[in-house]
Design a binder for these strands. Structure first.
Length: 564
RNA sequence: UGGGAGGUCGUCUAACGGUAAGACUGCAGACUCUGGAUCUGCGUAUCGGGGUUCGAAUCCCUGCCUCCCAGCCA
């Protein structure tokens, strides 16, 4: 987003307009304070990245601050593993919070505020069961029925609420509710629950509390305490804004402006925290950081870069429209970043043996290869060349189709940084499959140059059989089969793609032997890959991050479609 | 049949009463020691119907469609 260190103007957004209007009117004294408020009940995913970029980005843009606040009001679902992963992911994405808070830091203050509302007759302890509350809430067209406890005395409410806190009552037996309007067309205003009883160990407060505030009774006040000016959240909270406002107003505390924006949806990606948790818990993926998952930890392990993801978040913009972003935009952003930074290397994923008959057996030459044509400072490296090589099986066709430029009988191609070679014959197995290709080379073309100026239609990659090392390469495809929609009574996992992970043994340049986990490479003409955390010097493991654009694959496919 | 929020190229986003723009995708081409990258060109959109206006994606009316809401989840 920046050129020569100068921030280019960010694309306009309605949130920026609102902030500018507030600054112009002096509403918050020109201050901008935001926060990223995850619930620590799962790992962060690409949808959270959008929120992080918006919250931290806007704060930075306006010279404000952005906090990280854990919305940890439900001990039954939250835990430190999630807290830790979230902090790691936010930092990895490239952001550092100005202050770190937990909603649980405010439990005592929240309790006092609840007491204050009780004293004003604006809250009461309700003895209804969850089922009774549901059945008396009414419908969209009918008002709810008031709780029989709605008019309890302040003294009794105070006493009961204190005893709720003291642990005298079992889970679900009572709640503290706000007394607002059982006839409101907005369900959130029909005497919403403020506190419920949960005898559950909280990851921070332990057993100090057995009553916990609901989201609505915690979020706005947490924002208020922190001096948040603009409380950004997703569209599904629009209906909650009246309640957010009600609590701030009735408590008489600093009142931030809640602003809702559209949640990120991505084609072919599962961004439901519940479903991600299911996949992890059922062992259908290798963990929260499975490279097929759209979690930040999974994408990181897969090789997606923080800058690529940040750029993506900038490209998709922000609005209030419910839409779905095409996955290829994300891939574009990742490729774009990797293209600038990833070192090039040669690797053959589906090896086909090539013997150069006129090349001296036993001879080895060191060819000079460019590490990154986009970055001269990346330098060059030597690559061993010898008589027996491997090339990509797909780079040879005995009977080349139209517009196929690569190796085939009688045709000459360039071996990248190597020599021009011409195919002279093939060796087949009993099944008639080509298992070996014989060629001759032109010694004058060393390094891949053409002194006489003759052209070849194609340049292909290769590795020397004697020098290449084996590496496990994990190829990923969509976790869910595109277009497969589970029926209503079916589990969402029926759409799982059985071919989402393929492992192959590739022949790779020895230069990548000790690649550190997360180190990204471009396997020339194939794609971007990064070393997995399972990788060892003895047995390197690479994840395919994303394929390179493949024009030939596209034209071949269209050829096949034209003549079925 | 209640309330809330939205409908602009295939997708996402802009245009703030004054020539509907950009990105991704798609197609065509140039260039290339990666069929990569880069570059060029092409294509497709204001949900419908009324109105106000010299002029409407934008303002008004009306219809249609989509999403969210009846957790002691967030």
């Amino acid at each position: 987003m920046s050129i020569d260190g100068v921030e280019s103007p960010r694309p306009p957004s309605f949130i920026r307009d609102l902030i500018e209007a507030d600054n112009a009117s002096g509403r918050f004294g020109g201050k901008v304070q935001t926060r990223f408020p995850p619930e620590p009940n799962g790992y962060l995913h690409i949808g959270h990245a959008k929120s992080i970029c918006i919250n931290f980005g806007l704060a930075k843009e306006f010279g404000g601050k952005c906090n990280l606040r854990f919305d940890d009001t439900n001990p039954t679902k939250e835990g430190v593993e999630y807290v830790n992963s979230i902090m790691e992911d936010v930092r990895w994405l490239g952001f550092e919070w100005d202050a770190l808070f937990y909603a649980s830091d405010y439990f005592e203050q929240l309790y006092q505020w609840a007491v204050a509302l009780i004293k004003e007759g604006k809250a009461y302890v309700c003895d209804l069961s969850p089922e009774q509350v549901r059945s008396t809430r009414g419908t969209p067209t009918e008002p709810g029925q008031p709780s029989p406890d709605r008019d309890r005395s302040v003294e009794e409410n105070l006493d009961l609420f204190a005893r709720m806190r003291a642990g005298e009552f079992p889970d679900g037996s009572r709640t503290l509710r706000s007394k607002i309007d059982m006839a409101s067309p907005n369900f959130n205003m029909r005497d919403p629950v403020m506190y419920r009883i949960l005898h559950s160990e909280h990851h921070r407060t332990g057993d100090a509390w057995c009553i916990f505030p609901m989201y609505d009774f915690a979020h706005g006040q947490s924002d208020s305490i922190e001096g948040i000016t603009h409380s950004l959240c997703t569209l599904e909270f629009e209906d909650h804004r009246p309640l957010y406002d009600w609590y701030c107003d009735n408590l008489g505390i600093h009142h931030p402006q809640q602003i809702e924006f559209d949640r990120l949806n991505l084609t072919n990606a599962q961004l439901s925290k519940r479903k991600l948790l299911t996949l992890v818990q059922r062992g259908l993926v290798s963990g929260w950081d499975d490279p097929r998952l759209p979690t930040l930890s999974g994408m990181r392990r897969r090789g997606y870069t923080a800058e690529g993801i940040r750029n993506f978040c900038g490209m998709i913009g922000v609005s209030k429209t419910n839409g779905i972003i095409e996955y290829n935009l994300l891939e574009h952003a990742v490729r774009d970043d990797l293209n600038k930074h990833a070192l090039r290397v040669m690797a053959v994923l589906d090896p086909l043996k090539v013997v150069i008959d006129n090349y001296p057996a036993g001879q080895t030459e060191q060819m000079e290869a460019v590490n990154n044509p986009e970055d001269a400072s990346a330098g060059t490296r030597p690559v061993a060349f010898s008589q027996v090589l491997y090339i990509e099986r797909d780079d040879f066709r005995e009977d080349p189709p139209k517009q196929y430029y690569r190796l085939s009988p009688g045709r000459e191609v360039r071996l990248r940084y190597g020599y021009f070679i011409t195919c002279t014959s093939v060796v087949k197995n009993e099944q008639g499959e080509v298992i070996e290709v014989h060629c001759t080379y032109d010694p004058a073309t060393r390094g891949g140059n053409s002194p006489d100026g003759r052209k070849v239609k194609s340049t292909i990659h290769w590795v020397s059989a004697a020098h290449a090392i084996d590496a496990e390469v994990r190829l990923y495809d969509h976790l869910f089969q595109p277009g497969v929609e589970p029926k209503e009574d079916e589990d969402f996992t029926v759409a799982l793609n059985p071919a989402s992970l393929t492992r192959v043994t590739a022949k790779v340049e020895p230069s990548v032997a000790g690649a550190a986990p997360l180190a990204s490479y471009q396997f020339e003409r194939v794609g971007y890959f990064c070393a997995d955390r399972d990788s060892t010097p003895d047995k390197p493991v690479f994840n395919r991050t994303v394929q390179l654009k493949d024009t030939w694959a596209k034209t071949e496919k269209s050829h096949q479609q034209k003549k079925p």
